[in-house]
Design a protein around this nucleic acid. Structure first.
Lengths: 228, 228
DNA sequence: GGAATAATTATTGATTATTAATAATCTGCG
DNA sequence: CGCAGATTATTAATAATCAATAATTATTCC
């Protein structure tokens, strides 16, 4: 009786939201691009309704900005705002690390990410694209393992935004190597159940990533683009 | 300040969202109530469009649950989920306290909440309704003072959800007195710039509030209502 | 020519009517 | 009593339309 029915039904707006989010995150729609209802509804072969819904969702996710009677624009984040995002992100991934480390059933999750993190040690400084993919993947796995619904969905949305910039942070081989080492340390801390240490490592790594990412943007004083 | 153009234009869905949120939080719409588009559009004298938008916003705020082809229902939160919400809330209000305490320009904010917090000392154990109002007000003031946009809006949404339950926590005179003392201590810590201590006090108080609120709900094993 | 002002255009906001899809409820039959 | 099938209530989506608004372009007057 308590089974919450079928969550299988994926409505149109959800699908549209997903594909548009992908395009924004991967840079196909650069910051400042306008997302026009008429154009999109034509492209997807849909009426305005579902498109509107999707744009509203993207606004909630922070990926577009909607101004009344002016429409949706891909959010162009200032360097200051990126720093703010990472500041919260550092706190929340710290919390994530601590809760995972203190979870009695963490063994299953550890098993799942052990191989990817080991692989990251190999890739660091050698294959940037693959390293980035692995890092994002491990991050997603950790977030999705959270039993706290609110933190899981909120952190997922925050990561979606910041992932627009992590590729910048991982440009330097040195930072890749540093990141790989810290991921390994984090895994060890989690495995040994040391929540305090896990939190510290995760937060520190996040801050380092922020510094690395913003380094590339501080030249452009006003607005930071997220191109590939 | 960076006033981002005219945010004056408040669209219909925003207004609807606000009034519906109020009704949910104050218990006029108890958990499980169905929010039917046709009924609402008739009541507000509007078409379905804006109502739909508003319901989507409420879903994002976590106040209603929408199931495809079944519509919106006021979210009925399990005791477990309430505990989860407060768990994150404790972490985030801790962060809020620390950042405020470490803000060089915190004097202005301190001045603004000093009188209300002093008043809370008087009210504690005497006027529950007024004490609750003051507590929510001070909380809102602190959140709105945050310069970090993301944390401000996210925490506001989280507080909106938990405020459905704070009235339960403040039922006991003893907890009101404890709460008042802790608020005073928090104010002192902030004033003296002790971020560490401010964070600890805020998080501890939030956890105590959670324990107090859930005490009233643990009897009802399955679902916890948020009636007045 | 150049600045203020007025018309035009592009686009979203909102309404209305209609059809399709779906979940829940009811009904009658065995 | 239980279940198959019809019914109903409600949302999902479409389409056409008008209003409101912001941005752009054209026009006028100095």
């Amino acid at each position: 009786m308590s089974s919450p029915a079928s969550e299988l039904t994926q409505t149109l707006p959800e699908k549209i939201t997903a594909t548009l989010a992908e395009r924004i995150v991967d840079g196909s729609y650069p910051p400042g691009s306008r997302l026009i209802e008429a154009t999109l509804s034509q492209e997807f072969g849909l009426s305005h309704g579902p498109i509107r819904d999707a744009l509203r969702s993207l606004q909630h996710a922070g990926l577009v900005t909607i101004l009344p009677y002016r429409g949706a624009v891909v959010t162009d984040v200032t360097v200051r705002e990126i720093r703010e995002l990472y500041q919260v992100r550092a706190a929340l991934v710290g919390l994530r690390a601590r809760w995972i480390a203190e979870d009695p059933q963490r063994a299953e999750l550890v098993a799942k990410v052990k191989a990817p993190i080991a692989r990251m040690q190999q890739l660091a400084g050698k294959d940037r694209a693959e390293y980035t993919r692995m890092a994002l993947m491990v991050n997603r796995t950790l977030t999705e393992s959270l039993s706290n619904n609110w933190l899981r969905s909120t952190l997922a949305s925050l990561m979606l935004q910041t992932s627009r910039y992590t590729r910048l942070a991982l440009a330097s081989a040195a930072h890749q190597k540093y990141s790989a080492r810290q991921w390994q340390a984090l895994l060890d801390a989690i495995e040994s159940g040391d929540g305090e240490r896990a939190e510290k490592i995760a937060a520190t790594l996040s801050q380092a990533t922020r510094d690395e990412a913003t380094k590339f943007l501080e030249n452009k004083p006003e607005r930071g683009a997220a191109r590939a």
